[in-house]
């Protein structure tokens, strides 16, 4: 397969996954913004949304303050935001167009439809209902893309590079979401169980479609260390770091089998996956969740670059 094609496939699904994550970030913020401050705390949801989306620099260059109007506008279609939802969908479609031969017609149609629809949607000054509808639309695009790729693409390197992009992006998003929330919520060992963090954590879980599954797994109230456990270490949870790394590990193994050669990305993924398997939740909290997540984000980034050097150039 052409290295450029692999690169396009990798980025195509990264952009789709990113669009979905951004929609989920806005979801959390909107949900919390509806709560009275006694429940939601004094922290600014919109600032934290900008932090999670990792675009504070570009945002504050364009707007003086983080409020609902500015943040939604910027994340959805900010002119100076290279990673807005609109740009992500455009870039995904652009990458797909460059590799039409490598994806199925069905996958192409999802992205092309999404792009066509995007041209018709008014992206500025949305009212609440329009905003909710738009965010569902974005999440649906990602779900349909994912499901269609799963159901229609041949299990060859085309499919695997597409999956790699998705899991790298998803790991990044889960870690970031958790990091920003944790930072905002638990600067000190605050007493747990009050209304404030309950709503914060449940909004986070809900936006990851993980609230019900949390209850299924733990059968108790929402506790920050359990949420961290759930999103980092539980392989039952498909967005957890350990799940995405299990998948990355498998896909990179399949590639090395197919090509009959291993490289730095196989070594890196194995070591990060092994680290995750050996993490102990208590130690995680003692050593600092933030430090752990920052280190993880660095590893994940290095893996992305190793994949790029090994296969995509």
């Amino acid at each position: 397969m052409l290295a450029r094609t692999a690169d396009n496939l990798f980025w195509l699904s990264r952009y789709v996954e990113r669009a979905e994550s951004l929609a989920r970030i806005l979801d959390v913020a909107l949900r919390l913004a509806t709560l009275p401050s006694a429940y939601a705390g004094s922290s600014n949801e919109w600032e934290s949304a900008i932090d999670t989306a990792a675009c504070s620099q570009a945002f504050y260059a364009a707007y003086p303050i983080a409020n609902e109007k500015n943040v939604t506008e910027f994340i959805i279609a900010g002119e100076t935001n290279p990673s807005s939802i609109r740009r992500c969908i455009e870039n995904a479609r652009h990458n797909a167009r460059a590799v039409r031969t490598a994806i199925t017609t069905e996958v192409w149609e999802i992205l092309n439809d999404a792009w066509n629809q995007l041209q018709r949607i008014k992206l500025k000054n949305m009212n609440g209902q329009e905003l909710t509808r738009f965010l569902s639309f974005v999440k649906e695009v990602s779900l349909r893309f994912d499901g269609t790729a799963y159901r229609t693409m041949l299990r060859t390197d085309h499919y695997w590079f597409q999956r790699l992009g998705m899991f790298i992006e998803r790991s990044d998003n889960t870690a970031r979401l958790l990091d920003v929330k944790y930072h905002v919520l638990l600067p000190e060992q605050e007493p747990v169980g009050g209304g404030l963090d309950y709503f914060q954590w449940s909004a986070l879980l809900r936006s990851l479609s993980a609230l019900n599954s949390y209850h299924l797994i733990y059968r108790e109230g929402i506790k920050p260390w359990l949420v961290a456990d759930f999103l980092i270490l539980r392989s039952e949870q498909p967005r957890s770091l350990i799940s995405t790394y299990k998948n990355l590990n498998e896909v990179l193994d399949l590639l090395s089998e197919r090509y009959g050669r291993q490289g730095p990305s196989q070594r890196l993924v194995r070591s990060t996956f092994a680290d995750l398997q050996n993490v102990d939740t208590d130690r995680l909290f003692q050593q600092g969740l933030h430090e752990f997540l920052v280190a993880f984000l660095g590893e994940n980034n290095r893996l992305g670059m190793a994949i790029s050097e090994q296969y995509l150039q």
Partner: peptide
């Protein structure tokens, strides 16, 4: 596309993942 191909020893190759 052009940059996907290169010529070495008067033979044309494409850059692939392998």
């Amino acid at each position: 596309e052009g940059p996907d191909l290169f010529v070495r020893g008067n033979v044309v190759y494409m850059r692939t993942t392998e």
